[in-house]
């Protein structure tokens, strides 16, 4: 009768960090499927490639750090980072660009800071932002929805575009709605939509993708893997701000629906901003965190240099997360006031 002397509690809720990550990955799959449905094989190839690379880089660094491989790879965080990065990238990005992005995400943004749980910034978004800054040409070459462009790339063609350096055929490329809107110049919104009938026709593809990510996000909410605070505050703020400007000047500003259903909004709101490691943790902090991201997204989209701004907004607020946590501490049982800040 060998009795184990362990400290309480003696029971534990089933479920591990790896399970959490796996569920997040699963919740992102409908989005990936929708991307494939509308944009061809590119997103899938990108995703598989990025996940493989992420695991590879993680394994190499773990080896260098002399950490057990299976234990750390089994938390699936590297795979998730690779997948999220791939989902944010343009569908037919050349392989070396993806490689650079994953390398920076896993090696520099995550492992150099000490691995899972230690990184101050969202690794996938660091990778994305770096690519966007360094390779603006590649990073803005988006494919259009197949049904709109009418050009379909076979699986082999897609492989050739991504890995063999064949340029993306012009027939396939198309600007994203946000880009088009960004560069509408002096046109009013109505004139713009009247001019780009192709884009209007394809708008529903991007909306479908966002809808798929929204469904995945709702799944995460139901499984209590994330709380409503960050996505709720983010979407609500973006809705309110875009609604205000749309109401004031509808000819120059996109409608709230347009802002909420294009770009990486749903992916960002439910999958990226909610990354617990880099987000605020208290409920109040999460609300401020999400709302600030929503506000920043609108500001950068409307007055900034980039058509979409999820990555930059998330990174900026990552920077503020510890601060938010210190100043939004809950009131402890038996205390009159919540403590604020941190005493030195």
């Amino acid at each position: 009768m060998a009795l184990m002397r362990l400290s309480s509690p003696h029971v534990h809720r089933p479920g591990k960090t790896g399970d959490v990550m796996k569920q997040v990955i699963a919740a992102a799959l409908p989005g990936l499927a929708t991307l494939v449905w509308y944009f061809g094989w590119g997103p899938l190839i990108n995703a598989v490639f990025a996940v493989t690379l992420a695991l590879l880089f993680e394994a190499v660094i773990l080896k260098l750090r002399r950490r057990p491989l299976g234990f750390y790879l089994g938390d699936f965080s590297a795979a998730l980072t690779g997948l999220l990065l791939a989902l944010a990238l343009p569908p037919y990005l050349p392989w070396w660009t993806t490689t650079v992005g994953v390398f920076v995400a896993i090696v520099i943004a995550k492992q150099l800071y000490g691995g899972l749980g230690q990184n101050p910034f969202n690794p996938a978004m660091i990778g994305y932002a770096l690519l966007l800054i360094s390779f603006p040409v590649e990073m803005t070459r988006w494919a259009g929805p197949q049904e709109v462009t009418g050009a379909q790339l076979s699986f082999v063609d897609a492989l050739a575009v991504i890995f063999a350096g064949q340029g993306l055929p012009d027939a396939v490329t198309m600007a994203t709605p946000l880009e088009t809107f960004k560069h509408k110049g002096a046109l009013t919104a109505d004139e713009l939509w009247a001019q780009s009938a192709q884009l209007l026709a394809g708008l529903h593809a991007w909306q479908a993708v966002n809808l798929a990510f929204l469904l995945g996000g709702i799944y995460l909410l139901l499984r209590r893997i994330i709380t409503w605070h960050i996505p709720g505050a983010l979407l609500f703020t973006l809705f309110m701000v875009s609604g205000f400007f749309y109401g004031a000047d509808p000819s120059n500003h996109g409608s709230p629906l347009f802002h909420l259903s294009t770009g990486a909004i749903m992916l960002g709101a439910f999958f990226i901003a909610t990354d617990p490691v880099t987000a605020a943790t208290s409920n109040k902090g999460k609300l401020v965190f999400g709302a600030s991201i929503g506000l920043l997204i609108y500001i950068i989209r409307t007055w900034g240099n980039y058509p979409d701004a999820v990555a930059f907004s998330v990174l900026l607020m990552n920077l503020a997360a510890p601060f938010l946590d210190y100043y939004t501490r809950p009131r402890t049982y038996g205390h009159k006031q919540p403590q604020k800040g941190i005493k030195r």
């Binding site: 650079v100 770096l130 800054i133 360094s134 390779f135 603006p136 040409v137 590649e138």
Partner: peptide
């Protein structure tokens, strides 16, 4: 070479 703007920008210098 496509150019790696990040390295030329200040963050690249820091890294």
């Amino acid at each position: 070479y496509p150019g790696f703007l990040f390295a030329v920008l200040p963050p690249g210098a820091f890294v």
